[in-house]
């Protein structure tokens, strides 16, 4: 079953609530990484709006009280190093308590440094060796077809990850089988560990690559929640696999991390955490002001 057709004017309030949620998720990411003392802020922050839209924008069908619900949609974080964004979303969704986030990367924790299937509820695949999530998702999507179940499988890939050959094996196979319940999202933040994608191993034309594998492709601003939601509405219920290329900024939301690749795999210090949280507060206040202004303008224009 496809989710309802695109609502052209998702209410401003709904978007505003999602923006709030995205800010909360950013705060949780920064907090858990600072506590852990290691991890990957850049690629966690770039994916916040994508993951927020999935879990809180009415895209994913899931039940935190019943993580093994056979008809649940599956979400695979193939770029496993970005797992703080997933743990934050799962805690927000109610899969496990928020306190557990501060156990990230500690001995005996369910929150491993990269996602591990069978540990924390809501984790659908073990990832961390890049390139593998789409194949796993393809197997899940085909299993749904065999069982006549209607769940969808969403796989979030990194841009650097798309340099892995296995991604294109899976893309080719999904296109061949016209797997219509498989949706890939590429978090195209333009950087990989060692530097700029364009310097190390260019991906462009990325959309053409997916199209050539017989996928439907859309390119969006991966931080514009309205666009992200519309992209998911577009992506579900097509007759072949869909890929959303989300243009994003690594480290999004924290000025000194944005586009600064040093924060690919280095956790913030306590002092940086304080600065980052203060910025998020300011950003939130600004966002609230602009939402109020938009609402006022809408009202004045009689919309």
């Amino acid at each position: 079953m496809a989710i309802p057709a695109a609502d052209p004017s998702r209410r401003g309030e709904e978007i505003a609530a999602l923006r709030d949620r995205a800010t909360v998720i950013r705060r949780l990411i920064l907090d858990m990484l600072t506590t852990a003392g290691s991890g990957h802020p850049g690629g966690s922050l770039s994916a916040v709006e994508i993951v927020t839209a999935l879990y809180f924008g009415g895209v994913l069908r899931y039940d935190p009280k019943w993580p093994d619900w056979p008809d649940r949609d599956r979400f695979i974080l193939s770029k496993g190093h970005g797992v703080p964004v997933l743990y934050a979303a799962l805690a927000e969704a109610g899969y496990f308590p928020h306190e557990e986030l501060r156990t990230l990367r500690r001995i005996d924790s369910r929150l491993q440094g990269h996602p591990v299937y069978g540990t924390a509820p809501g984790i659908e695949a073990s990832t961390g060796s890049l390139g593998q999530g789409l194949s796993i998702g393809l197997g899940m999507a085909l299993a749904a077809r065999l069982d006549k179940r209607r769940y969808r499988v969403f796989v979030l890939l990194g841009d650097g990850e798309c340099q892995e050959g296995q991604v294109w094996e899976a893309a080719m196979a999904a296109g061949h089988h016209r797997v219509d319940n498989l949706i890939a999202i590429v978090d195209y933040n333009k950087f990989q560990l060692d530097g700029a994608i364009s310097d190390i191993m260019e991906l462009d034309p990325l959309a053409a690559k997916w199209e050539s594998m017989r996928w439907d492709v859309i390119e969006i601003d991966g931080h514009d929640l309205g666009e992200v939601l519309r992209a998911f509405e577009w992506a579900v219920g097509r007759d072949r696999p869909a890929c959303i290329i989300a243009h994003t900024t690594k480290g999004k939301g924290v000025s000194f991390m944005e586009g600064e690749n040093a924060y690919h795999g280095v956790a913030p210090t306590e002092e940086e955490l304080v600065r980052a949280l203060a910025e998020l507060d300011t950003a939130r206040a600004r966002a609230e002001a602009s939402i109020e202004r938009e609402a006022r303008e809408d009202k004045e224009a009689g919309r």
Partner: peptide, 21 residues
């Protein structure tokens, strides 16, 4: 499913199938 000459993808797909029962 004959996945063609894609051993890595085949193994990954198998993991997905298995996790769905």
């Amino acid at each position: 499913f004959n996945v063609g000459i894609q051993e890595a993808n085949m193994v990954g797909m198998a993991g997905g199938f298995a996790s769905c029962g």
